[in-house]
Every structure is written in structure tokens, then in C-alpha cells.
Design a protein around this nucleic acid. Structure first.
Length: 297
DNA sequence: ACGAGAACCTGTTTGC
DNA sequence: TGCAAACAGGTTCTCG
């Protein structure tokens, strides 16, 4: 579900609610998500203060006063929902007020049986992790060991950082014969991109998704890097893209889906071509790719 | 060693 | 209308 802009939007929502607060109670409703929860998960979290919430690629990193960091990946359908103590129904128990009205309104929350972890803060606010498909997961790691931990160690540069630039991208791609579409989904090349924003960035840069990755250098690398940074910036600004599962922590929607040029637009006319070229959908390594065969070479 | 495809799960949409 | 197949924002494992 969520790519970098969606995870960043969730991070901002959680930071407002959780930073500086103490985890008064933690309820875990099953032994595992995609992976088993860490040993003594509830005990290691209960009573900890949340110092800071950061993001690395698509991971949320919740730094605790114990010196440990709670990492969370949303997979395809994971979401955090905040039920404020001041919301309507505040006199009800936490279990009775979730999910908030806005989540009902979007239709994005369909089943309480997928509430896997419920955090109650000392403010009274309740933060719930819900994930129908259970591709999401959580882990705990000491702050010092975090960057070399299993899940984070191999990640490529943050696309919005200066470490991600035309020459670093060209270097990462020079040995790859796979199509550029697949290479950009490889989190070791650049971290945080997913199917939507790869399609959109390739369109903006005029690069064909089937082009061999190693041919991206020079001007093409410059155009691609710029397109990736811009599309991510714009999507974060719009609060991400809400298609099916993804919603904000307050149940609200992102708006960037209205600005997709190609994603999900098979058969529609290309927004940049003046002729009547239509957007094509192909399948690459099992995932849909949308592009304009005339404009993208 | 690399790359394509399957697998992991549930829910929703599409097609016969 | 009803049921089955296809599809979904991600990652990881297996196989050729």
C-alpha cells in the first residue's frame, strides 16, 4: 500500500499524537504479522516515553526512552489510526470509539478483527495498528544497532537526500540488466519508491519502463533523479495517495491520486501527447506498469 | 550471482 | 444474480 509519501504522512500524524507521550498500555492481539513480534514485545514497550518518530524509506521508527526503537512497516494494507481522547464518544472505552468517524466515512476501515496492536497513551489518545493482509511487521532494535539492523542495513539512499543524485544512481544501475522499472523498485538501489511513484517518475522523465537499467546515465539519470524528487515532494505535500487501504492517522484521505499522469489510467489519452496516444498497461515482474509508449523511450 | 516468478494474506472488483 | 478469477500501494524466498 504505502510508499514513501504515505509513510511520511503517517509519520507526521503519529508524531503530533505520540511524541513526548508515555505508552500507558500496549495490547497485542496475535503472535505475528508477517513475522513474529519481538520477544517480550508488550513488556519492552509499556511505560516507555516516545521521544521521536522518524522515517527511513518505508519504515516508521519510533524512538523510545529505553534506548530502543520500535520499527514498523505497513506492508500493503497496514495503517495506524489515532482515536483522540477528545473525539466524540470519549467517555466510551477505547475499544468502543475505534475507528473514528472519518475512517468510516472513507470506507477504508472495514474490519475491526484486523486491529493487531493497540497503544493507549498517557494523554488518553489511542493508536491502533490495523492490517488486513498482514504483510506489515514490527521490530525492536537498540538505537545504536538500528542502522545496521536486518531490515535497514541494505537500504539504498533516501531519494530526497543529496546522497541520491544522478551520479550515485548511474553507479547503482551500471551493472543491472533488468528493466529500469524493476531496478527502481529494488530498495537497495533507492529506498522508498513503490509501484505508483516509479510509474509516475518514469513518465515525467520520459524514460521507458522497459529500458535496460544500465543505460540510465548522463542526461537520463539527471532527468530521472529530478522527476523522482519532484513527484515525491508533490505527493507528500498532497498527503499521499488514497486508493484502497491507505488513510491518514485521522482517517482522512490523501489527494495525490487525482494527479496521477499514468498510474491506473490504462486506455486514457496521454496527458502530454497532443496526438491520441493512449496509456498502456504491461506486467513487469508480476506488477502492473503504466506508461506512454510514445513519450517514454 | 542475477532476475523472474511465486508466496505470503484478505478484501474488492471484474468477468463469465 | 452468483461464483470464480484477477487484482491490490510490498517484501522475501525459491528456482532456473
Amino acid at each position: 500500500m504505502p510508499e514513501l509519501p504515505e509513510v511520511e504522512t503517517v509519520r507526521r500524524g503519529l508524531a503530533v499524537t505520540m511524541e513526548g507521550r508515555v505508552l500507558q498500555s500496549v495490547v497485542k492481539n496475535r503472535p505475528d504479522l508477517r513475522f513474529p513480534f519481538p520477544d517480550r514485545f508488550v513488556q519492552r514497550l509499556t511505560g516507555q516515553r516516545v521521544d521521536r518518530i522518524e522515517r527511513r524509506a518505508k519504515y516508521l521508527l519510533i524512538a523510545l526512552s529505553s534506548g530502543e526503537v520500535l520499527g514498523a512497516h505497513l506492508g500493503m494494507s497496514g495503517r495506524f489510526i489515532v482515536t483522540p481522547v477528545s473525539s466524540p464518544g470519549r467517555n466510551a472505552t477505547a475499544a468502543e470509539v475505534w475507528p473514528p468517524e472519518a475512517a468510516y466515512d472513507t470506507g477504508a476501515v472495514s474490519n475491526r478483527s484486523h486491529d493487531h496492536v493497540i497503544f493507549t497513551l498517557d494523554s488518553g489518545d489511542v493508536v491502533t495498528f490495523n492490517d488486513p493482509r498482514r504483510f506489515g511487521y514490527m521490530f525492536l532494535e537498540s538505537s545504536a544497532a538500528l542502522s545496521s539492523s536486518k531490515h535497514l542495513a541494505a537500504l539504498g539512499p533516501e531519494p530526497l537526500s543529496d546522497e541520491f543524485n544522478p551520479s550515485s544512481l548511474a553507479r547503482a544501475l551500471e551493472s543491472k540488466r533488468t528493466p529500469i522499472k524493476a531496478a527502481l523498485l529494488d530498495q537497495r538501489v533507492v529506498s522508498g519508491l513503490g509501484n505508483i511513484y516509479v510509474c509516475e517518475a518514469l513518465f515525467r522523465s520520459g524514460i521507458s519502463p522497459v529500458r535496460s537499467a544500465h543505460t540510465i546515465k548522463g542526461v537520463r539519470a539527471e532527468r530521472l533523479v529530478l522527476a523522482i524528487k519532484r513527484v515525491l515532494d508533490e505527493a507528500i505535500e498532497a498527503g499521499g495517495s488514497t486508493l484502497r487501504d491507505y488513510i491518514h492517522t485521522d482517517g482522512g484521505m490523501g489527494y495525490f491520486q487525482h494527479r496521477f499522469a499514468v498510474y491506473g489510467r490504462e486506455g486514457e489519452t496521454c496527458p502530454e501527447c497532443t496526438c491520441d496516444t493512449v496509456i498502456k498497461r504491461i506486467v513487469q515482474s508480476g506488477r502492473s506498469t503504466f506508461y506512454c509508449a510514445r513519450r517514454q523511450r
